[in-house]
């Protein structure tokens, strides 16, 4: 739900302000790759109606955001192309290599799924780099990144809950480790987010 909220905040910003200033297209494209490689089981692995609907929402909204940033006349002009310089392959290639080395089963679907878990953990990095370079971070962008970080932190709590409360719960070390790293990457952002919130000041990251 926090993940869904983050997407709603981002779409709200882009749609109402007709601007994507401060939003990293690189991170959006990495997320698209994360969702495509993870939800290859969309038709073969039915978990629940909720699960299927959320998968479709995450996939379509991410491609919608990318379309807005690349294709929409006004939104495209507000994109900070010169600042958003992080290279995809710096993250994609190491994650692919890691997925080929560390996985639970050597099948195409499993390796791609593992790759998506690793890539998700670091997909925020281009956005954090852009954020540091952006002087005026608007509230919607700040809250968007906060929700994007919070959903994995909340997963950590959910994993602990499931571990103790569910009888047939399986240990999933790859997901747990990647989730911990993903949350740790946000630690710095969370610190400045709460600091600015407490002081009622505009969010600003130190250079």
């Amino acid at each position: 739900m926090t993940h869904l909220a983050s997407i709603c905040l981002l779409l709200l910003k882009i749609h109402t302000m007709k601007s994507c200033a401060g939003v990293s297209l690189k991170t959006q494209e990495l997320y698209a790759l994360v969702f495509v490689t993870r939800y290859l089981d969309l038709f073969s692995n039915f978990v629940s109606m909720y699960n299927t609907i959320m998968k479709i929402i995450f996939l379509s909204s991410t491609f919608g955001i990318i379309w807005y940033m690349r294709g929409h006349k006004l939104v495209r002009q507000s994109y900070d192309k010169e600042q958003d310089t992080f290279r995809h392959y710096f993250l994609v290639i190491p994650c692919m290599v890691l997925a080929l080395v560390i996985h639970s089963k050597f099948t195409l679907l499993e390796v791609l799924w593992t790759f998506s878990i690793y890539l998700e953990a670091v997909a925020i990095l281009p956005q954090l780099v852009l954020l540091q370079r952006t002087r005026n971070i608007d509230n919607l962008t700040g809250n968007y990144i906060f929700c994007l970080g919070a959903y994995r932190a909340l997963y950590l709590l959910n994993w602990i809950y499931r571990y103790f409360m569910e009888k047939n719960y399986h240990a999933q070390w790859i997901t747990w480790m990647a989730g911990m790293i993903q949350t740790a990457i946000y630690a710095d952002f969370f610190y400045y987010y709460f600091k600015s919130w407490k002081k009622n000041e505009r969010l600003k990251l130190p250079a």
């Binding site: 629940s48 995450f58 399986h170 997901t175």
Partner: peptide, 10 residues
């Protein structure tokens, strides 16, 4: 042998 964790998360 242990079965793999079912993929029930997003």
């Amino acid at each position: 042998t242990k079965t793999a964790a079912p993929k029930d998360e997003l």
